[in-house]
């Protein structure tokens, strides 16, 4: 092709390329916005998302949602904000470990009693464990399907429960998590759901009684569930 003709062609194509880039940018922005909206909808449909259960204060009956990983303390930015006598600003870190329960790592100088025994470096709390933090006495109520042993465990090792205490409402029974679909197409399942379609996401609560609103939730820590 002659130089002149190529010049004209290339200079004409400039506008095409800018158009492509602009379209690309536009689609990206739209994608991100739609995704964000989808996420918010998901969070609303799954109010418990990210939590493994609740800590219930035996005296005041206040319920604190327990995240998978977080902090307990009297500071405002703690995930579980416990205000009481003897509660440090940052009292302990908690981290949920599948199979072992809720790992509790007290901060230096913080006193925690797990089922009556003091926690030295770290301990794992199982279902219905009793935690005494300062003057507050809390019971750990884990979600039914969460993989955790009953009662408390000490140290990092896994001690099988001495006995399984069945509760009247079936809370103490450990139900194993559904099998991960390792053999199937992981990519297809790992999606945000219907991010781009106008369709509603699959409603997991279809046919199930709605969660009672107005739960006595303490507004602890950052507003992590709201965007």
């Amino acid at each position: 092709m002659s130089q002149e003709a190529f010049r004209l062609l290339s200079r004409a194509m400039r506008y095409v390329f800018v158009l492509i880039a602009a379209l690309y940018f536009l689609l990206t922005v739209l994608w991100m916005r739609r995704d964000q909206r989808q996420w918010k909808k998901e969070k609303k449909n799954l109010p418990d998302a990210g939590t493994v259960g609740e800590l219930v204060d035996e005296d005041s009956l206040k319920r604190y949602p327990v995240p998978r990983e977080g902090t307990i303390g009297s500071a405002r930015r703690c995930d579980i904000r416990v205000i009481g006598h003897g509660v440090k600003r940052l009292h302990a870190d908690i981290r949920f470990a599948d199979g072992k329960g809720l790992m509790i790592i007290p901060a230096r100088g913080a006193k925690i009693l797990l089922n009556g025994e003091p926690v030295s470096s770290r301990a794992c709390a199982g279902r219905d464990s009793r935690l005494k933090i300062g003057s507050a006495s809390l019971v750990l109520k884990l979600l039914k399907n969460v993989d955790a042993p009953a009662r408390g465990v000490f140290g990092d090792g896994y001690d099988p429960p001495a006995e399984v205490v069945p509760g009247a409402d079936g809370w103490a029974r450990v139900v194993p998590l559904p099998e991960k679909h390792a053999g199937e197409n992981p990519g297809e399942d790992w999606s945000w759901g219907d991010e781009f379609g106008a369709e509603e996401p699959e409603d997991p609560f279809r046919g199930v009684a709605p969660v009672p609103s107005g739960r006595a939730m303490d507004d602890g820590g950052e507003d992590e569930t709201q965007e």
Binding site: L46, D48, A49, L143, D169, P204, P212
Partner: peptide, 19 residues
Amino acid sequence: GVRRDRTLAGLGGEGGAGV
């Protein structure tokens, strides 16, 4: 995590973590 949470919730039955 989302998948796990949905599964948990799906099987969570009434009200998730009750007292």
